[in-house]
Write a protein that binds this DNA or RNA. Structure first.
Length: 886
RNA sequence: GCGGGGUUAGCUCAGUGGAAGAGCGCUUGCCUUACAAGCAAGAGGUCGUUGGUUCGAGCCCAUCACCCCGCACCA
């Protein structure tokens, strides 16, 4: 199998995607450990296509899943999709409209049939798209929130909650979306500041035209709602109004007589201290109305146009009505004034239509008790948040929780298992569809029209997908799930509610860990949306740069800011990384044709290992340790950066370069050692990288000699043996010297192809030994042809020089050196050292430091000082010499 | 109004008590046969302000400034 010079991802992706599925690696298989690792996927909704947020979310999960699988857990990751009641209904309805139909024309049954057709098409498309991201979820377990098994769980939970008194039905002010034409829960409304007006309207007293002041002025932001006013309220302590107790007022334009009532809710300092009360259209007014037995007048139709209660205003759209009413009030002389006023406007989080507080009969869940339990399990540590800071948010919301309005006036969703007797009014809540009333035996019964909030069904996801309410094998084996990965935007909608339902119905937490991750924004950190026109299609990204590069960039860019800044340009950088891996693998494979890994273990532990071998193996083990740790705590970007850095900077830039001359010596034992180390480190690196870049790592892994199975099920590296401190120290000395010489080369503008002579001088016998033993590293990497290592050698007359530790570095030159340039370079280093030395000396002359700082810190500081002095003196001397030679 | 988070290199971000880091970008020189999707070298930071704790602060505490994000019934 020839390897091309450049990595071409697409054929490779296709090859291994089908290979993995054929081998059935994605479904659970017992691993070398007894434990299981399970996860449910946050189900994308079936309305459309997968976006960047989904790609990000499933990539993170896949990384964990592949990691855990390699660690030997039996892994179950359940993929799924969500029926998304309102959103899907909207989409399908729009489509029908284009065909010239309305859903009413279709009728409920036929309409739902159409949505099922939609689901078949687009649901499958979503699953298909998921595969493009190389995710290794258990496809045979794929779930849908409207599946029969899931629906059974929904019914079961509804009935249990109803029977236990958690679910109730009642008339309250709810958030109504006039466009979606359904009730919404509190958190489905988004508020924003809106520049409006505060209107001051005069309400005259009944028959009191003789008094000085014959009206009360109220202030309102919504003058159109006067049509539904049934009182004016003032604070009972308000001296201005006390005298008018018992008086009645006339509602302008309408003529209705309103009582003046006294209620403590009213803030005397706001506006005029008088509040118009519209109990059917404002939450607080509703409560006041209840306290004072006020009439409820609903003035709106479902689409927020004025209904017949609005008299001559009937049929007006609400904002047009406002304009008209303000005009009319002006003409009647009832509008005292208008002020600019910013108020908070609630909008539907799906369609941005402004929400109408609306009085209607709805179903609710009492939340207090459920929320307390959900707080408890986190406080007790049964569920852990990563990062931890999200706990706070979670607690705050649960502590202030309101009852949850769960009924929706739409057709697509789980219809409430509730029937009403048309004769006696009995409410029947049962598992099986009833044929007659339990109370009066009438057969005139009718099922509730409403469906449940989609989030109600999603809240059961971790256990409904495992077969609950039946405690089957899967449920017993994989529940509670191990981890949930979710964006912060649905912490309340979904995560918190799953915890509540999980505890309530399984008496266990639904997941042990929660990773809350950011959402994807554009380069500026702004939310991606169609209206902003900054949407990036993740499928495009995979086509352009390859799935591996795309996945890696998502993870590498991950931060803890609310929106991570995604820019297609950045993906290019990680495509380059993929290419780097491809090429270093190509290099290794080109050089291990005659190598067999059968004696690998012996080779790696032999005393024939060179210093650089020991060094790279040590660095590799350290990387294994770091990456593992970061993955365990879901610090994905740190893990990714660590691998990137190891493979590129350490393995490619240093180690591989050092093996080149060794590999050239055919047949030697040292060549075999180098081959063994290259093989080992590459193999370990591929494994570490596999969760992030599954395709390329599999492809190369399969090319390596000795590979029998997929990298997917290979063992995650252990990093046994820890760090080789000695090798790392020695190696960093050599690296320092090499960099020093390279710097000289660059600064002195020595052509790269020109071989140079290098003289190294050290008084330290130990350093002398290190240099002599590994002199080839220096000659190889700085392109030197003659290397002198001595303790007493003279500085050549014409040379460039540098210092590494206690070692003098001289590079003799034939032509005249640019002395000024070298002086400048050395002087800069000299200055930095002086500064640092000053700081160190200050510390070491401080009695307090010597007394109070830990001994090892003092020791370190002393050593540092000695080194700095050594280097400074050398530089001083060198600078003096240079000055003299001018 | 309450709460949370942030302010570190041109950009995006790591760094939680003992000598300021990475990626990208930038500058310079190189096709040195794994890789120009590359190699080597380099420039660039009083770590937002003012105080405090400490032998020692980018890191802990307080303050102010600015930014972001949640939550809240003042009509």
């Amino acid at each position: 199998m020839e390897m091309e010079k450049k990595y071409n991802p697409h054929p490779i992706e296709e090859k291994w995607e089908s290979f993995w599925e054929e081998k059935d690696y994605f479904s659970p298989h017992p691993g070398k450990r007894k434990e299981t690792f399970s996860m449910v996927m946050p189900p994308p909704n079936i309305t459309g296509v997968l976006h960047m947020g989904h790609a990000f979310n499933i990539t993170l999960q896949d990384i964990v899943v592949r990691f855990k699988r390699m660690q030997g857990y039996e892994v179950l990751w359940i993929p799924g999709i969500d029926h998304a009641g309102i959103a899907t209904q909207n989409v399908v309805e729009r489509k029908l409209q284009k065909e010239g139909f309305t859903r009413e024309k279709f009728g409920r049954e036929k309409f739902i049939e159409r949505i099922w057709q939609w689901k078949e098409k687009y649901g499958e498309r979503i699953f298909h798209q998921m595969r493009k991201f190389a995710i290794s979820c258990s496809w045979e377990d794929k779930a849908f929130t409207m599946d029969e098994s899931h629906s059974r769980a929904v019914r079961e939970v509804f009935i249990a909650l109803y029977e236990q008194g958690y679910i109730y039905r009642g008339d309250y002010i709810i958030n109504w979306c006039p466009r979606c034409q359904t009730a919404l829960s509190d958190i489905e409304v988004e508020y924003e500041d809106f520049p409006g007006k505060l209107y001051y309207i005069r309400y005259p007293f009944v028959n009191s035209k003789t008094e000085d002041k014959n009206y009360i002025t109220v202030a309102t932001t919504r003058p159109e709602t006067i049509l539904g006013d049934t009182a004016v309220a003032v604070n009972p302590e308000d001296e201005r109004y006390k005298k008018w107790k018992g008086k009645k007022l006339v509602l302008p334009l309408v003529g209705r007589v309103l009582p003046l009532i006294f209620d403590e809710y009213v803030d005397p300092d706001f506006g005029t201290g008088a509040l118009k009360v519209t109990p059917a259209h404002d939450t607080q007014d509703f409560l006041i109305g209840k306290r004072h037995n006020l009439a409820l007048i609903n003035i709106f139709n479902k689409d927020a146009t004025i209904n017949e209660k609005g008299g001559i205003y009937q049929g007006f759209e609400r904002y047009r009505c406002r304009k008209k009413i303000v005009e009319d009030l002006k003409n009647e002389g009832c509008l005292e004034k208008m002020e600019d006023y910013t108020y908070r406007l609630g909008r539907c989080y799906r369609c941005e239509t402004s929400i109408e507080p609306f009085l209607s009969t709805q179903w609710f869940i009492r939340m207090r008790e459920l929320a307390e339990d959900a707080i408890g399990v986190v406080k007790e540590g049964k569920i852990k948040f990563y990062p931890e800071c999200w706990e706070r948010n979670y607690f705050d919301w649960l502590e202030k929780i309101h009852d949850w309005c769960i009924s929706r006036q739409i057709w697509w969703g789980h219809r409430l298992p509730v029937w009403y007797c048309q004769d006696c009014g009995e409410i029947i809540v049962t598992r099986q569809e009833p044929t007659r009333c339990k109370k009066c035996s009438s057969s005139k019964i009718k099922q509730e029209e409403d469906v449940l909030d989609t989030w109600f069904s999603s809240s059961l996801w971790p256990f409904s997908t495992l077969g609950w309410p039946e405690a089957g094998e899967k449920f017993n084996r994989f529940y509670p799930t191990s981890l949930l990965c979710s964006g912060w935007d649905i912490l309340f909608f979904w995560v918190a509610r799953m915890v509540m339902m999980g505890i309530k119905f399984t008496h266990k937490v639904p997941f042990e860990k929660v990773h809350i991750h950011p959402l994807i924004g554009d380069e500026k950190g702004e939310k991606m949306s169609k209206s902003r026109g900054n949407v990036v299609d993740p499928i495009d990204m995979t086509k352009k740069y390859g799935t591996d590069a795309f996945r890696f960039s998502l993870v590498a860019l991950k931060t803890e800011t609310p929106y991570l800044r995604f820019s297609p340009d950045r993906v290019r950088g990680y495509r380059n990384f993929a290419n780097k891996i491809w090429n270093v693998s190509r290099f290794v494979l080109m050089n291990i044709g005659d190598f067999s890994p059968s004696n690998l273990t012996r080779a790696l532990s032999s005393n024939k290992l060179q210093l650089c071998d020991r060094w790279i193996l040590s660095r590799c083990r350290k990387s294994v340790k770091d990456v593992t740790l970061h993955l365990e705590t879901f610090e994905f970007s740190q893990a990714a950066q660590r691998i990137y850095q190891f493979i590129w900077q350490e393995f490619c830039d240093w180690y591989v370069e050092l093996t080149k001359s060794r590999l050239r010596k055919e047949g030697g034992e040292d060549r075999y050692i180098a081959q063994a180390v290259l093989y080992q480190v590459l193999r370990e690196s591929l494994k570490l990288l596999h969760p992030f870049m599954p395709f390329i790592t599999e492809d190369i892994f399969q090319r390596l000699p000795g590979t029998k199975e997929s990298i997917m099920i290979s063992n995650w590296p252990e990093g046994e043996g820890g760090e080789d401190k000695e090798a790392e120290e020695k190696m960093s000395l050599l690296m320092e010297i090499i960099v020093e010489i390279r710097t000289i080369r660059a600064e002195m503008e020595i052509p790269p192809q020109k071989k140079i002579e290098v003289i190294l001088r050290t008084k330290s016998p130990e350093h002398m030994r290190i240099l002599k033993e590994n002199s080839s590293y220096i000659t190889d990497l700085v392109h030197a042809e003659n290397l002198v290592i001595a303790s007493d050698v003279e500085r050549p007359k014409i040379c460039a020089s540098g210092i590494a530790g206690d070692i003098d570095v001289f590079v003799p030159l034939k032509k005249v050196v640019n002395i000024e340039k070298e002086k400048k370079r050395l002087y800069k280093i000299f200055e930095d050292i002086e500064k640092e030395l000053e700081r160190t000396e200050k510390k070491l002359t401080s009695g307090e430091f010597l007394q109070k700082a830990p001994a090892e810190v003092v020791e370190k500081e002393k050593e540092k000082k000695a080194q700095l002095i050594l280097k400074r003196d050398k530089l001083k001397k060198r600078l003096k010499e240079l000055t003299l030679s001018l």
